Amino acid sequence: MRKQPVKAEEMHEVELMIGRILRIGVVVSAIVIALGIILMLIQGTGGYPNGVEPHGFGTIMQGVLALKPYAVMMLGLFLLILTPTLRVVVSIYAFALERDHLYVWITTIVLIILVIASIIGYLGR
């Protein structure tokens, strides 16, 4: 026996969750970037010599733990980039709840493209 499709109020809750994810992601990343700017104003430097900046996630996190302003701002930008990717992941979940298999596949392909583009961008620096 086939289960009933998801009710409209359940889908409304998923849409609200997606909206919250986007808002929270943007606000958190803005706060982190602002903290980096404040640290830079206090320290008077980005925390790295001229021409040197963290590239990998590990080096960014090391810089954040050392309170290097440029690394903190890079973390904020990373969070900002991650926000719409997380929205795509939640959309896959929402389409799966609706049992809309076509859109689950399409959105999964979009997620794969995002991940591949991120990897290529990371490796290409």
Rank of each mutant, 00 (worst) to 15 (best):
E98Y: 01
L111F: 10
A94N: 03
Y48F: 09
G121I: 02
L75W: 06
I60V: 14
I33A: 03
G121F: 08
V104S: 08
T107I: 12
I38R: 01
L65A: 15
L86D: 04
Y122R: 14
T59K: 15
L16H: 11
I24D: 04
V27C: 02
I24N: 04
G19M: 07
F78H: 15
V72K: 01
L79S: 08
V32T: 00
Y122C: 14
L77P: 02
I106A: 15
L80G: 10
V6N: 09
M61S: 06
M74Q: 14
Y48D: 00
A117V: 08
M40W: 03
P84M: 07
M11N: 08
H101V: 15
H12M: 10
R23V: 05
L123T: 09
V28E: 05
R2A: 13
I37M: 00
M11K: 07
L22M: 12
K68W: 08
S91Q: 15
P54C: 07
A117T: 08
L79R: 02
S118L: 13
R99Q: 08
I42M: 03
A96P: 11
T108G: 15
I21C: 07
L114K: 04
L22G: 09
G56A: 12
F78V: 15
G44Y: 00
V28G: 03
V27P: 01
M74Y: 14
G19W: 02
Q62K: 15
G76Y: 00
G124Y: 06
V26P: 05
V88C: 10
